[in-house]
């Protein structure tokens, strides 16, 4: 267990969330827009090669925030383009986001079968 990396995961992961919180409080951007922004930013970071050093430094601090999801898509796309040429730009995105999307959808579906929404409480 790398304690320094654990600390960095906490700090970087926390800071990424603080930036989003500032955007919510100061600009009244809706959460949905912020998530979209973060995913696209992650794709950008992955594309220009800045994500890997961040990941090496912070591990889950980089991969757990939605930026990691975007960067993962970027990585998958570039690998797929290397392998399949231009067609890879259509194959890659879905392959790379498959695990996240599938698990969210499947767990979501199962939860819908089991649970019910409850009234909100103050």
């Amino acid at each position: 267990m790398d304690l320094f990396k654990l600390l960095m995961a906490f700090l970087i992961g926390g800071l990424i969330c603080v930036v989003a919180q500032l955007l919510i409080d100061l600009t009244r951007l809706t959460p949905a827009r912020i998530l979209v922004l973060y995913v696209c930013f992650g794709v950008f970071l992955g594309g220009v090669g800045l994500y890997t050093p961040l990941f090496d430094l912070a591990g889950a601090g980089a991969s757990v925030p939605l930026i990691g999801f975007g960067a993962n898509v970027a990585k998958g796309v570039m690998e797929s383009v290397d392998e399949n040429g231009l067609l890879g730009s259509l194959m890659g995105p879905f392959t790379a986001s498959a695990v996240g999307c599938s698990s969210a959808l499947i767990f979501g579906y199962l939860a819908a079968l089991i649970f019910k929404s409850k009234s909100k409480r103050t």
Binding site: V39, G47, V73, A74, V77, L86, S89, L90, P93
Partner: peptide, 12 residues
């Protein structure tokens, strides 16, 4: 995510 990934793929 898919859209920006695809665009990145074409650029790449």
């Amino acid at each position: 995510a898919i859209l920006s990934g695809s665009i990145l793929g074409v650029i790449y």
